[in-house]
């Protein structure tokens, strides 16, 4: 299993658009993807509802984990997506 910690940097945190982009990206991989918050809440990385109801604001730190055939590529892609502030200015 691969895991990596990232910080949410975009203004409004995990709102619809970032959550949507995260799920779209996660679905490109066969691995099981999870997102773990600082207080140990774990949600399915392919569930937009799970991601959004975490209520992650700007500045929150989360751990992305992936387990499966393409786990390495998955974590790399998702970390990159978060660090790119989901393409927001």
């Amino acid at each position: 299993m691969i895991r990596e910690q990232v910080t949410i940097q975009n203004d409004q945190g995990f709102h619809v658009r970032p959550a949507q982009l995260f799920v779209t990206e996660s679905n490109k991989f066969s691995s099981t993807i999870k997102l773990i918050t600082e207080n140990d809440n774990t949600v399915d990385g392919k569930s937009i509802l799970g991601l959004m109801t975490l209520g992650l604001a700007q500045g929150s730190t989360v751990t992305i984990t992936a387990e499966g055939a393409d786990e390495e590529a998955a974590v790399r892609a998702l970390v990159e997506l978060v660090n790119s502030k989901f393409g927001e200015a």
Binding site: V16, D44, I48
Partner: peptide, 16 residues
């Protein structure tokens, strides 16, 4: 369209 795509994802959500 992103908001509507978000709704599509809610429908397709593995927990829904």
């Amino acid at each position: 369209a992103v908001i509507l795509e978000g709704q599509t994802s809610i429908l397709a959500d593995p927990t829904f």
